[in-house]
Design a protein around this nucleic acid. Structure first.
Length: 652
RNA sequence: GGGGGCGUAGCUCAGAUGGAUAGAGCAUUUGCCUUCUAAGCAAAGGGUCGCAGGUUCGAAUCCUGCCGCCCCUACCA
């Protein structure tokens, strides 16, 4: 609602300037830092001062005097130095909020693919993976909320080195048969077992470099697709994918499609892309130097001011393709530019009937397109990948550009974020011995190869446990099952908020104490504010009182009277900016903005809650206003939280 | 060496298009539970926005140089 008023006022200023002075100027609008200055402000007089060579203050005076009435504006004031402060008509604004049905945003044409999570299916997910998935999932929610059609993909690298290493661990180190591994996949926490095995085999490789032959053999067998090693590869990857889906499911994250590397290989996606790249001479066969015998993309393609550097190897001298090469093929497919498609079958159906699909190489398994969603052929693609891989993402985009797909290259967006590291205190809690060098650092990087990290499920368990204690102590008489459910909602709120409150390019030094806190700038704080509002509305119902007919009782005059009180007005105003926060967040690609907004709004309500007992208010008009403000706030905050993937519990 | 990011209160972080007295949370200190839930509210202290120049009515924000930290710069992903 706020941005409607903002736009209207802005265009009033612009038309005034056009008619009176024949000036076309994009008038800047700001939200003043101090509420006492009004709801909007414009430095337009400063913009004009240079051209007109007159004092800004004088110009501002002139504009204010001549502008005339603008709908929804109560007053224009010139601030000392030349600002024009704008005060909204609170009665008009209040009525607009009261009457305004927030129609769902118009659907936007063109599908957007968001690829996120992308965890190697060889071990349990850790805290860094959670940041990726929560950022990606929240951005998906933000996009959908603004009318975008979004397809969520979680790419499964089931044939890579990481899977191969765990397979080698089972086969060569542990001497397990496929049948035995199959048994293990049925045990709980198979992903934890692989976590440890991965650390062990990595250490074995470090200590016995000659055994790296195992990796080579395994990789080859997996690529070929038959034999016991390949069998174990499938068992491990499929089982771990299910573990990851369960972990992510716990925090409300789902997918539409799991494209797998095995199909990219089997269906010869790469061969097709390779031909295209060769035809358009985007890559060349190196004939000398250290890259002799490799197909290479010249660095000039993806680096500005590239010096005489070696390019990026796309095909190794032994004929195998690198990950980047496969990624180019995958990216082409996402835009429908490859001229090939996967076959598809259902991987899993969620409780509410939503299906996750998976790529398959088998035409026999394929579900025809009229029986399933249509995949790929996107207008725009977001790849949620950590910033360490920006170089490789540049290569992928350069590949598209070299093939003549400049527009698609432009619409390939690396949604990057910084890593999650571990704080020294948390490392100590994990019982990790630090080297002298690490001790001096503010944080230490997670390492799967060393088995160093905080597992996602462990963290979630810990959060649930902590929340459970709080809920149990406050509501001992409520049903145990419900208390458990609420503890889970709080845990999810705490976790998602914690990962979202940092902007994307901030390295998070993960700290248990901080993440497990439910006070201050946290998810539970925000949830608590919403719960308090809900409780007031429920109490009203318990007393047998109907919800007042706000539209009838709160006339423009009544609203103007009541909203003259600054506290009421500020709460309502803040609550009305939820849509604005979401729009801004999408525009800047920064989910943290919505998290910040939710916290600020919660703060405003908590203060209001403390100062104005709603149900005991004696003045009827004031009480109606208090109730309406409570209801409106609750609706807006609950919606904002839902966009962040955070539920509002019935009680806390 | 090259590319990218960062440097704001004791700590962890926000500061959209340059704009008014630079903000939160934590921690510290002090008040407030017989009230719609104290996972809360109110208040206090705490800052050369890394340093030095420049651009202009105005710079934490833009430009240049320097200092410090991190990441990338593989025939790993």
């Amino acid at each position: 609602m706020f941005h409607l008023f903002e736009r209207r006022i802005q265009s009033a200023f612009q038309e005034f300037l056009k008619h009176q002075y024949d000036i076309e100027l994009p008038v800047a609008m700001e939200q003043p830092k101090q509420a006492s200055f009004g709801e909007l402000a414009t430095p337009v007089a400063f913009q004009l001062a240079r051209q007109w060579k007159r004092a800004p203050q004088q110009i501002a005076q002139e504009i204010v005097q001549r502008l005339g009435p603008v709908e929804g504006v109560a007053a224009l004031e010139v601030a000392g130095n030349g600002y024009i402060n704008i005060r909204l008509d609170r009665g008009v604004y209040g009525r607009a909020l009261l009457e305004g049905q927030s129609a769902p945003p118009a659907p936007k044409p063109g599908k957007i693919i968001v690829e996120h999570t992308n965890i190697n299916p060889n071990k349990a997910a850790h805290i860094g993976h959670l940041r990726n998935a929560v950022l990606g999932d929240t951005f998906v929610r933000l996009l959908r909320e603004t009318g975008c059609q979004v397809e969520v993909q979680n790419y499964i690298d089931n044939t890579g080195v990481q899977v191969a290493d765990v397979v080698a661990g089972f086969y060569f180190l542990e001497k397990k048969t496929p049948a035995e591994v199959e048994q293990l996949t049925r045990t709980t926490r198979f992903d934890y077992l692989c976590w440890d095995l991965y650390a062990r085999i990595s250490q074995h490789f470090r200590e016995h470099p000659e055994s790296l032959e195992w990796r080579k053999t395994t990789l080859h067998a997996i690529e070929e697709g038959h034999g016991e090693l390949a069998q174990i590869g499938h068992l491990v990857a499929d089982a771990i994918v299910n573990c990851h889906l369960n972990t992510m499911g716990r925090i409300g994250i789902r997918y539409d499609l799991l494209p797998r590397e095995s199909e990219i290989l089997q269906l010869k996606f790469w061969a097709q892309a390779f031909e295209l790249l060769k035809q358009r001479q985007a890559i060349y066969l190196e004939t000398e130097g250290k890259n002799k015998g490799c197909w290479v993309m010249p660095s000039a393609a993806f680096q500005q001011e590239a010096e005489e550097e070696d390019g990026k190897v796309i095909v190794r001298s032994n004929g195998t393709v690198t990950y980047v090469g496969k990624d180019i093929a995958y990216q082409l497919w996402k835009f429908g530019l490859l001229g090939k498609d996967f076959y598809y079958r259902v991987w899993k159906t969620y409780e509410d009937g939503h299906r996750v699909w998976v790529s398959t190489a088998s035409a026999a398994e394929n579900v025809s397109e009229d029986q399933r969603p249509s995949f790929g052929r996107a207008w725009q693609v977001y790849n949620v990948i950590d910033s360490r891989q920006s170089y490789l993402q540049d290569v992928v985009v350069a590949g598209l550009r070299q093939l003549g797909y400049a527009e698609q290259a432009e619409r390939s967006i690396h949604f990057s974020y910084e890593m999650v590291a571990l704080s020294p205190r948390t490392l100590a809690e994990l019982g990790v011995e630090l080297s002298e060098e690490d001790r001096r650092r503010p944080y230490v990087e997670v390492s799967g190869r060393k088995g160093l990290g905080v597992k996602a499920d462990d963290l979630i368990d810990k959060l649930v446990e902590t929340a459970q204690q709080e809920v149990d102590s406050r509501h001992p008489s409520e049903p145990a099952e419900q208390r458990r459910h609420i503890a889970e909602q709080i845990a999810v709120g705490a976790l998602r908020y914690f990962l979202l409150k940092f902007t994307r390019n901030t390295v998070i030094a993960f700290d248990f104490q901080e993440a497990l806190s439910f006070e201050g700038d946290t998810g539970p704080y925000v949830q608590y504010a919403a719960v308090r509002a809900r409780k007031i509305l429920e109490k009203l119902q318990e007393r047998g009182e109907p919800m007042p007919d706000f539209e009838k009782l709160l006339s423009r005059e009544a609203l103007a009277r009541q909203l003259a009180r600054e506290d009421f007005w500020q709460l309502l105003l803040a609550a009305s900016k939820a849509g604005l926060a979401v729009e801004r967040s999408v525009a800047t690609g920064e989910p943290a903005h919505v998290a910040r907004y939710a916290f600020t709004l919660a703060q405003a309500f908590n203060s209001f809650y403390h100062d104005y007992p709603v149900l005991t208010e004696q003045d009827p008009e004031k009480r109606t206003l208090l109730l309406w403000a409570t209801q409106y706030f609750h609706r807006q905050l609950e919606w904002t939280l839902s966009v962040l993937g955070i539920a509002t519990p019935p009680y806390m």
